[in-house]
Write a protein that binds this DNA or RNA. Sequence first.
DNA 1: GTTTTTGCACTGACCAGTCAGTTCAAAACA
DNA 2: TGTTTTGAACTGACTGGTCAGTGCAAAAAC
Lengths: 227, 227
Amino acid sequence: MAGPVPSEEAVPVTIRAMERSSAAAGGGSSRREATRQKLYEAAVTLIAEQGFSATTVDEIAERAGVAKGTVYYNFASKSVLFEELLRHGVGLLTASLQEAADTTDRAGGTKVDALDAMIRAGLGFIARYPAFTQLYVAELWRTNRAWQSTLMVVRQQVVAVIECVLREGVANGEFSDEIDIPLTAAALVGMVLVAALDWQSFQPERSLDDVHASLSRLLQGRVSGSR
Amino acid sequence: MAGPVPSEEAVPVTIRAMERSSAAAGGGSSRREATRQKLYEAAVTLIAEQGFSATTVDEIAERAGVAKGTVYYNFASKSVLFEELLRHGVGLLTASLQEAADTTDRAGGTKVDALDAMIRAGLGFIARYPAFTQLYVAELWRTNRAWQSTLMVVRQQVVAVIECVLREGVANGEFSDEIDIPLTAAALVGMVLVAALDWQSFQPERSLDDVHASLSRLLQGRVSGSR
DNA sequence: GTTTTTGCACTGACCAGTCAGTTCAAAACA
DNA sequence: TGTTTTGAACTGACTGGTCAGTGCAAAAAC
């Protein structure tokens, strides 16, 4: 849609380069992996913009610069492509959150510090993959869909990382033992998700530091009182 | 997919209740208004479950117990039906939030009290209209769709109510003047939205009071410290 | 008698998924 | 070395089905 004809050369180089390195490592050939990656990237933006049902397989194939048949050679169906995309993205997110928590721990930080680092990691992830985040929020609370179970897994995976930190904080006395861990975790996720989507959509010029500071302030109750 | 057949009665009560109030207000006859109301209710659950594109006009008509032609007699198109549904629902939500804020004000409460009352009102709304909330979250950050402008209006309408309370709180010194009003408002919306959806989906047996207390605690920074 | 609803056949566009055929790099061979 | 074979990866025209929206005559409601 952008250029008259999407350039289709210059690709083999990448393919060939990867081919050699990871062919042995992963399961499939790396040519295939590269194609799957292109399909993920095409699908994530289209589905974020239009939703799953409104996005056609033809569109995904076209944006990925690949024939329709290739989509079906690599994924059993449109739904399966979507489910694997979800798992893939959430894997990246949870890894990022977990790493933030672990790093804080290793540096001898408190659990509040860990939470704060996770908020920052969450914001960073959303800034890097806004389309995925959009799609995640839009599809997470759908019921009656084929991929219900994947959705549950993918939700629990994210919430669990946060619940874990909250639980440790309660255990060491840093947090009140009256807090409701699952609900608080969900609320935190929502806070970061919605604030970040708003940031990206309506004030994209602001820096991550800036947004992070605002959320930190809110979280630590430094909103009321003061001046 | 879950139960054999989802129960479809018990709805008329709500319809009839709304009928009386809005028949005089709106322009059209109340028969027409009743039909539109039935269509809203049918559409909201179906779209919440499946998404806009995956929901067919035939389904909506069938669930509303109405002929397909009637849908097009009352709405210009499927999209228009959806847009009007969005405006309708958001109107109810903002009215509820505004009323909570006003009541608190009139009772001489602080702005923190007002926020707290609005959280409760928000939770109440979500408990009453879970399908609408689901749909609202799912569609709010979509781009590239026909109803972009409606979406913006409908977003701003909700956020504005909260921003207003925050602004008043800053003005009277109750809140720090360093808070970022739009971002904080968005974060609060997200917190309530996601916590409530989680409540409805995964712990529906809990009481509103209970959930409200947890969110209140989080908001007022009574999480860290204490025990 | 006017407004609203019904029922239903119809159209044209669109779309998920299929499949017979093509490509080409690497393996086997000579 | 150069030649042939193999098969994984990819292609795109095609199919069967679905769905938004139309048209309209007759019935029902008011």
